[in-house]
Computed example of a mutant assay.
Amino acid sequence: MQIFNQNKSIFFLTCFLILSGCINESKTDRDFNKIVESFTSKKNNFSKTRNRLSEEYIFSELSVVKNELNKLRSVIYEDLSNEEKVDYKFIESLLVGKEIRYEDIQSWKRDPRDYMNFRQISSTINGAKTCKDKITFLTEYLPIIQEDLKSGSKQLVEYVPRFQELGLYMAKNSNVIFDEEINKFFESCSSITQDEKNQIKSISSQIINELKIFTNYIENILPNREESTFSIGKSTYNKMLKYQFLLEYDDETLWEFGWQE
């Protein structure tokens, strides 16, 4: 009877542990699946956000990223399946990449090129989209470009000579986009109305004026700011290697590996 009772106790204990394991595993799966679903359902609104390069917006994005990382890291990694572990590392690498960009590198403080996102304009108006789509794009995107330039004149506070040189060259050669290229687009788009032309010309003219202010800031004011460097530092570099690029090397072992190869 005593042996029977012992076996009975062992049986119930085993069942309890199995059920507990199943419950914990299913909870881990549910939590992780919610994170994956939330992550994959997010849309990239960078091209449509008016104040996208303001420090206020950037730091609000950093707060969101940190919150998402905390949720992800609250999941028990060891309880995930092999496939889920791959997803976990992939999501973590993307989030850490943003965290590093927003918190550690902060290139918007020293690189003028961050504020001149003009390539999308040329590629769109010279691309295969319809005239209607191009007009919609210009009326929505050009005001954002103007805000970008305004943010640049306020937020560039560190002088990196090479960045200043490249930024100045880019700024001085960008007027053609808002003058010649847009005028050529008008000629190629027969369906555009006069009101639409006037609207696009007006904001283009404002951008050209804002670009002059920005160019003057880069050329004459930025060099008087505190001189800085484009180096991101050892700590940030190692964080990038481990969590963003998922490498097992640090700055020293990667250097050694490179020489061995």
Rank of each mutant, 00 (worst) to 15 (best):
I208A: 02
K129W: 05
F46Y: 15
E61I: 07
L53K: 09
S26P: 11
N33A: 08
D31P: 06
I145V: 08
I182K: 00
E55F: 09
S231V: 10
E210M: 05
E261F: 12
E210H: 03
I35Q: 00
R113S: 11
L80E: 04
I35M: 02
L94C: 13
Q155A: 03
K154C: 04
V64P: 03
E25W: 14
N183C: 05
K201H: 06
N51L: 14
K154M: 08
L69A: 07
L247M: 07
E99C: 10
Y249C: 03
N198F: 08
E25H: 15
R225W: 04
P143M: 01
I207H: 01
F186L: 09
E180V: 08
G97F: 04
I58V: 14
F185D: 00
Y249H: 06
A171E: 02
E37M: 00
N51S: 15
L13F: 12
Y159I: 08
A171R: 01
I3F: 14
N126S: 08
R101I: 12
G97Y: 09
I208K: 09
G167W: 00
P223L: 09
N7K: 15
Y237G: 04
W259S: 12
K42Q: 15
L80G: 01
Y77C: 00
K48P: 09
E180L: 10
I23H: 10
V96N: 08
E261W: 11
I125S: 00
P112V: 02
I145Y: 00
E25M: 14
L247H: 00
T40K: 08
S188A: 11
E187Y: 13
I208R: 07
I18V: 15
I182E: 01
E248W: 09
L53W: 04
G152L: 00
F186I: 08
D250R: 04
S26Q: 15
E103Q: 10
L166F: 13
G152V: 00
E84C: 06
F137S: 01
N45R: 14
R119Y: 11
S151F: 05
V160Y: 01
L156R: 02
L241D: 05
G233Y: 07
T28N: 15
F59Q: 13
E227T: 14
E158N: 07
K66A: 05
E99H: 11
N175H: 14
N183T: 07
I192H: 02
F186G: 04
L94I: 14
P223G: 07
D133R: 06
F39G: 02
L19N: 06
T136A: 05
K71F: 05
E92T: 11
I135D: 04
C131Y: 02
L95G: 05
E165L: 11
I10V: 14
E61T: 10
R162F: 13
N45S: 13
F214P: 00
A171C: 06
W255V: 14
S41M: 01
T49Y: 02
R113E: 12
M170L: 13
S231R: 15
I18D: 08
L13I: 12
I232A: 10
Q206F: 04
E256K: 11
K132P: 01
E219R: 03
N82A: 15
